[in-house]
């Protein structure tokens, strides 16, 4: 494969993973107005639960049962976390600050809980597609191609949900005016829980993606969370299309930079560019000024 082809493939692959993580963060921020530092560990839980359900040493369920089950369980965990860590502080002036520390603390609890339950031995789950596919002269892993193909579909569905269904509209509305939502009869608490649960499920899906090509460890969510933070900083957290675009742009930036500048300098370069972008456009590259989904 040509250099250009390799760079593009890598950009699309990394971009897909980043987008999958970042959208959940943006979803929680836009609806609830807090930053969820549990997002990385929810991804870890998604991967470990998928392993628990699918691995022959554990439950050994078929993939098509195990994966949705893992997503559901993580969504339920997200529900519970929201009720415990965020809901009690809503309405306080310092909710953003308090939510940072409660989600950080919960993330530490869950990370070490994962270690406690599943141990430190690296694990892996079967890839979504096992083979390699010949693309031009070289072989590409089918798992990577599957991720590249599935991600836009999933994110497209999320977009449709937020823009075309009444519940999705309600999620966008709750971000903009909570009082008015109550007055048309919405259950704001339930909408918060839904946003958190949906974001958790997306993180879990990203975890399943990761677990199919890398060894899993309880700490596996930290790095993707950092990257997702970069993506939402870059794309703006006020909507979900901005972070999606930003995810692919950063994937491309990294692929190009790693090839031409080198592996070690790339993260520093990325953060330097990020800071410059933020100095020019604090709300991110693609954000409008107000908070609102889609």
């Amino acid at each position: 494969m040509t250099v250009l082809g390799q760079i593009l493939l890598s950009a699309l692959f990394q971009g897909s993973l980043y987008a999958m993580m970042a959208v959940g963060l943006a979803l929680v921020w836009t609806t609830i107005g807090v930053f969820n530092f549990c997002h990385g560990v929810l991804m870890t839980l998604g991967a470990y639960l998928a392993w628990q359900f699918v691995d022959p040493e554990a439950l050994g369920l078929p993939m098509f049962v195990a994966l949705p089950l893992a997503l559901l369980v993580v969504a339920a965990i997200g529900f519970a976390l929201q009720a415990l860590l965020i809901r009690p502080f809503i309405g306080r002036g310092d909710v953003v600050l308090v939510a940072v520390i409660t989600t950080l603390a919960a993330s530490s609890i869950l990370k070490n809980g994962t270690l406690l339950v599943w141990g430190p031995r690296p694990k892996s789950i079967p890839p979504l597609a096992p083979d390699t596919i010949a693309l031009g002269a070289s072989n590409v892993s089918a798992h990577q191609l599957a991720i590249i193909a599935i991600t836009p579909v999933v994110l497209g569905l999320v977009w449709l949900f937020l823009n075309r269904t009444r519940v999705g509209l309600a999620l966008r509305a709750v971000a903009q005016n909570e009082d008015a939502c109550q007055l048309v009869g919405m259950n704001v608490t339930a909408l918060y829980a839904l946003a958190f649960g949906l974001a958790a499920a997306l993180a879990a899906l990203a975890g399943i993606f990761f677990g199919g090509f890398k060894f899993m460890s309880p700490d596996m969510g930290t790095e993707p969370l950092t990257k997702a933070l970069v993506v939402v900083i870059f794309g703006g957290i006020a909507n979900i299309t901005g972070p999606i675009l930003a995810a692919y742009i950063i994937g491309l930036f990294e692929a190009v930079s790693i090839y031409y500048v080198g592996f070690y300098w790339t993260p520093a370069l990325l953060f330097a560019v990020l800071i410059v972008v933020l100095m020019v456009r604090p709300e991110g590259l693609f954000a409008r000024s107000s908070r609102g989904l889609a």
């Binding site: 940072v100 900083i233 070690y264 953060f271 800071i275 933020l278 604090p282």
Partner: peptide, 23 residues
């Protein structure tokens, strides 16, 4: 900047310092 943007940017800044040290 205000609010969450300060959080994000100062986080990015700390990561930049970390990456420079690592590199």
């Amino acid at each position: 900047l205000k609010g969450i943007y300060v959080v994000l940017l100062s986080f990015a800044f700390s990561q930049l310092i970390l990456q420079v040290i690592v590199s």
